[in-house]
């Protein structure tokens, strides 16, 4: 069974239609890249899937393992296995990163009917995952994303992904604002999380991320829907020729 099925999805913001019939099927273990010019609705798609308020789905559906998620609250979608890595992770003064991570882990455990994680186990788990992602211990003590560099913020997102072990991950412009070193660390983190039953949708404007995270499928997004799909070679073609033909066509 497909992990994610997006079926002819139409969505509006303030009465203006942004998504104009998006259809996409992602099977377990697949890495999909969604590429396209800015302002065509790529982030809208990720927000609609994650359940952000302010978007009205006018028709179509999004199924996770065959079950519609559109009536679910954002936390229910998260606990069911959907993870959105944000393009602009928010800074939350006063909330220590470790406190937040523990709350997120416990929310998922509660949902699964498990008891809360104990302090020692939590510390061990977080430190191990943080080390793999080059996230320093002092970052865990600092408030969520406050004073983090662009690269640190994105690493923190991947750390959350690693701890919550979602089924379906959306990376929304994760490469924006990253230098090459940070891009490598983040990509290594994502690649380490690839598995036979976990799938990814990587949203990006540039091909460079896809040199590090190699997709199985590439989709061109323009005018509120997918206008072309292909293999990884499509990304190279886009890098050379740009999006002009798709923008014009849309």
């Amino acid at each position: 069974m497909a992990l994610i099925e997006i079926k002819d999805l139409h969505a509006s913001v303030d009465g203006k239609e942004i998504l104009k019939g998006v259809s996409l099927t992602i099977n377990p273990g697949e890495m999909h890249a969604l590429m396209g010019p800015n302002g065509t609705g790529k982030s809208t798609l990720s927000n609609v899937i994650a359940g952000r308020a302010g978007y009205e789905v006018t028709s179509g559906d999004v199924l996770l393992e065959g079950r519609s998620i559109l009536d679910m609250e954002p936390n229910e979608r998260s606990n069911a296995g959907v993870f959105l890595a944000f393009q602009y992770p928010v800074e939350i003064p006063g909330v220590a990163t470790s406190t937040f991570l523990k709350a997120a882990i416990n929310a998922k455990r509660k949902f699964a009917g498990q008891k809360e994680i104990d302090a020692m186990e939590f510390l061990k788990l977080v430190k191990a995952r943080a080390k793999e992602l080059n996230v320093r211990d002092d970052m865990l003590k600092r408030p969520v994303n406050v004073g983090f560099s662009g690269g640190e913020k994105k690493r923190a997102e991947i750390l959350q992904m690693a701890l919550l072990e979602p089924k379906f991950c959306i990376l929304d412009e994760t490469d924006s604002g990253l230098d090459i070193d940070a891009l490598k660390v983040v990509s290594d983190g994502v690649n380490a999380l690839r598995s036979a039953d976990r799938s990814f949708l990587v949203i990006t404007h540039y091909q460079r991320l896809l040199s590090y995270i190699v997709p199985d499928f590439v989709h061109v997004f323009a005018g509120g829907r997918i206008v072309r799909s292909g293999g990884k070679e499509l990304a190279m073609e886009l890098e050379e020729n740009g999006y002009a033909e798709y923008v014009d066509a849309a």
């Binding site: 952000r52 609250e73 936390n75 998260s78 997120a104």
Partner: peptide, 10 residues
Amino acid sequence: FFLRARGLTE
């Protein structure tokens, strides 16, 4: 939204 997208209830 950030916190809820990480699984926390309202």
